[in-house]
Computed example of a mutant assay.
Amino acid sequence: MALIKFPTKTVNTDGVNPFVNSVFDNLFNDSFISDRLVTRIPAVNITETTEAFAIELAAPGLQKSDFKINVDKNIISISVDKVEESVSDDKLYSKKEYSYSSFSRSFTLPETVNYSDIDAVYVDGVLQVKIGKKEEAIVAKRLIEVK
């Protein structure tokens, strides 16, 4: 068996058919197509402290009234269904990227959640949802002395 080491640089195949390569390069590097392939769901951070869970959802450009937060059994759903108004200005956009028109994120809650202690705040483009824990789920920390 023979092992062949390929060069680390890309092989220049423009000599074979430069037209085909330029078409594929333009197709895969086109922002119109690549923007459609990228999901438009906001990023989420989930943290846990001794007293509560916290969900932080990055969704700039929205209003507090755009969010709907539903809790059904052990699933919390955060959704936005925003209808974009078409405003005719004197502006001519060459590219318009930020448009979270609608999305939905759902998360399964553990059994330790206190369902009456859920709060949400929208500040500086970040939705912060605080989900409290039950009293029996909060573990008291203490130092144990070794004897």
Rank of each mutant, 00 (worst) to 15 (best):
L143K: 12
F6A: 11
Q63E: 15
K73Q: 15
A52F: 11
R36I: 10
I138A: 09
T108F: 06
N17L: 02
S106W: 00
V146T: 04
L92G: 11
E111Q: 07
S65T: 14
S101M: 08
F67C: 08
F24E: 11
T108Q: 12
A58C: 03
V146F: 07
E135F: 02
A140M: 02
T50L: 02
V139N: 06
T39I: 05
D35A: 11
K82M: 09
V146W: 00
N114Y: 00
A52Y: 00
S22D: 15
S116H: 06
R40N: 15
I78E: 01
K9W: 00
K73V: 09
E111G: 10
A140K: 03
P7F: 01
L127Y: 04
V113H: 06
T13G: 02
P18H: 06
Q63I: 08
K134D: 12
S94A: 10
E97T: 06
I118R: 04
L62G: 07
E56P: 10
E136G: 05
T49Q: 05
K130Q: 10
L92I: 14
D25K: 02
A137E: 07
D119T: 13
V113R: 07
A140T: 08
S102A: 15
F107W: 08
G15C: 03
F28D: 03
A2S: 11
P110Y: 01
S77P: 06
Y98P: 04
S106P: 01
V123E: 14
A52K: 09
Y93L: 14
E136T: 04
N21A: 09
F28A: 03
D119Q: 13
S65D: 08
S86E: 13
